[in-house]
């Protein structure tokens, strides 16, 4: 039950949101979008790794 990954993803999400707002205030809007994109990609990589582990477990357990 690695809740630590959940907190990591939540932290990235909030961080990216704040970064986006701050950069918007500073007038560098495109940098904010870039930061958001990078954050989402990082979360996507973690989630995909977890889903792959889930699929392997299901395949082994149910002999699919």
């Amino acid at each position: 039950m690695d809740i630590e990954l959940v907190f990591r993803i939540a932290a990235i999400g909030i961080l990216v949101a704040i970064l986006h707002t701050v950069l918007q205030r500073a007038g560098r809007d495109e940098l904010g979008q870039l930061a958001t994109l990078v954050g989402v990609v990082i979360v996507l990589v973690w989630v995909i790794r977890l889903v792959r582990q889930l699929f392997d477990t299901v395949r082994v357990m149910f002999q699919l």
């Binding site: 959940v6 979360v43 996507l44 989630v47 977890l50 889903v51 889930l54």
Partner: peptide, 9 residues
């Protein structure tokens, strides 16, 4: 993504 991850965990 987080809800997907929680389901998998």
């Amino acid at each position: 993504g987080l809800s997907l991850a929680v389901g998998a965990i």
